[in-house]
Amino acid sequence: MKPYSITFRHLQKHFNKRTLFTIPELTIESGKCVLLSGINGSGKSTLLKTIAGLEKPCHADIIHNGKSIDWRSAYKQIHKEIIYLHQNPLMFDASVADNITYGMRKQGFSTETICSKLDNALQWAELEALKNNNARHLSGGEKQRVALARAYVLSPKILLLDEAFSNMDIEGRKRTFDLICKLKDEGIGIILTSHEATQIISLTKHHIRLENGQLLEINHKGNVVSNVAKSGNLSLVQETA
């Protein structure tokens, strides 16, 4: 997989005059797994949706694979390369198989590709037995696996997982965890959000925290290393020394 990077500079979002966050610089690259923490309402979901091109930022300069592009052309690219997974994944009112093939069908993949990728994904997420079930009637953990498989078949560069582990028992968490590990091993860049910071620390080397509208970098011991807003730069690729 070719290295992929996207940088947001001066990323700003506010709702009705209330500023949710101001981020001087944020770079996201393939192959890294980052934990994004923050209390309820700190704006984690909004930040991820903005990165995924689902929320329009109030301001952003975007550098896509080294080239500076405007928001209009950026988000067309982003929709093909970055996939956002909801806090509670939404299943289309259709079978598990149809849910998994949705993106491929809309993007005009060939029938053979769709079939082989579907079989592969069903096996990958251990969903073979549920293939023809209506996805709306699945359990929370099963829905999460369908959502991961649905993204996996599209080979995204970056996956944004919003609270991927909420509402799940230990078994469900473990299976989701394993799938995310596999995605990481394939070189897909991942950002996970969680308000329980410790839970998935083994998966992620990097930890950033959204606090009072600012993005902070946290080291292994849980201390703030740098205030991104002050240092003016955060690159998620560089190992924190």
Binding site: A52, H79, K106, Q107, A151
Partner: peptide
Amino acid sequence: SDRRIWETARTLGASRIQAMLTVMYD
């Protein structure tokens, strides 16, 4: 309607019109 339908369709690469039809189907 649930906004997540539109967002899910769009993030999975559906065009605006395709996403609109998906919402209508729902």
